[in-house]
Design a protein around this nucleic acid. Structure first.
Length: 280
DNA sequence: GACCAGGTATTGC
DNA sequence: GCAATACATGGT
């Protein structure tokens, strides 16, 4: 993937397949990308405001130092080195309904998000709906992040959040999740939870470690592994996945979907949520 | 007003 | 162990 550099703030990527902005940003894996026009999204990641548009197989990326940081950051973030065509073909051989789900949103990619942001976001997600999750996260960023462009705020660091208390968090209106957010930040800040260590550990150990955080159960741990550590075998099961499993894959569990179970989960989750009549 | 939302911790048996 | 229940908040 060789970017065509327009200037340091704009690059163009050609021949990128299996990448659709709507599908990738609205499949429930991330909360900080917003649609501006039909083919333009703006989001904040790694303390940068990024604008992205895709036309056929051509991607235009705009953001501060995006050319310089393409190889070290954005290529990974958008998971552009992963061959999704190959993965979809492999998943489609496992199960015919999974094949349908893959074809329903073939442009989904699993973003490699920041560990702390993913952990914190999915703590907030519990027993909550997506519009409100986004609202809480935006308030968290506006209150405690840096204003990196007028009206755009970075996700606050765990160090910043670790020093707060519940009343500091009151403005973000996250409800009972306040103590969970604080505990997560404090455990990372103290070194009790080490993202680097989790990355290299076997998945069961990492899972157990994550669940030492208050408010992190199996579902949030699995989301953190998948979205924050890019462990593609992680398999979050929420209410939608539970219904989808009962309907389409009775008696099956993560192991049925193999080493890319997490990606399979994403196709299935999105397919179910967009077609609620099928699983309700 | 009851019920639900990408769940989890606590409690009661 | 495992099924109920509480938990903040906002939308239907």
């Amino acid at each position: 993937m060789i970017p065509q550099i327009i200037n340091d703030n704009q690059i163009i990527l050609e021949n990128v397949r299996d990448f659709d902005l709507d599908q990738t940003f609205n499949c429930g894996q991330c909360f900080r990308w917003n649609k501006i026009t039909e083919n333009l999204f703006v989001g904040v990641a790694f303390e940068k405001v990024v604008r992205i548009s895709v036309d056929k197989e051509k991607i235009v990326l705009n953001g501060p130092s995006i050319a310089t940081e393409f190889n070290s950051l954005w290529c990974d973030y958008f998971d552009l080195n992963t061959n999704y065509d190959k993965i979809k073909k492999s998943l489609s051989q496992i199960d015919s309904t999974l094949k349908i789900a893959c074809k329903y949103a073939p442009g989904i990619r699993i973003l490699k998000q920041d560990f702390w942001e993913a952990l914190c976001s999915f703590i907030i997600s519990q027993n909550n709906n997506i519009p409100r999750i986004k609202g809480i996260i935006e308030r968290l960023c506006a209150c405690f992040g840096q204003e990196i462009e007028s009206g755009f705020f970075s996700f606050p660091s765990y160090s910043t959040i670790a020093k707060l208390n519940k009343s500091d968090l009151a403005p973000i209106k996250c409800g009972f999740r306040d103590a969970y957010i604080l505990d997560a930040a404090q455990k990372i800040f103290s070194g009790d939870i080490c993202p680097q260590k989790l990355k290299s550990e076997d998945i069961n150990t990492a899972r157990t470690e994550l669940m030492k955080i208050k408010g992190v159960g199996p579902k949030v741990a699995e989301c953190t592994l998948l979205y924050g550590l890019h462990r593609l075998e992680a398999f979050p099961v929420d209410v939608w996945m539970k219904r989808a499993l009962e309907t389409f894959f009775p008696g099956k569990n993560a192991s049925y979907f193999g080493q890319y179970a997490g990606i399979a989960q994403q196709y299935i989750f999105h397919y179910s949520r967009m077609n609620p009549n099928l699983v309700k």
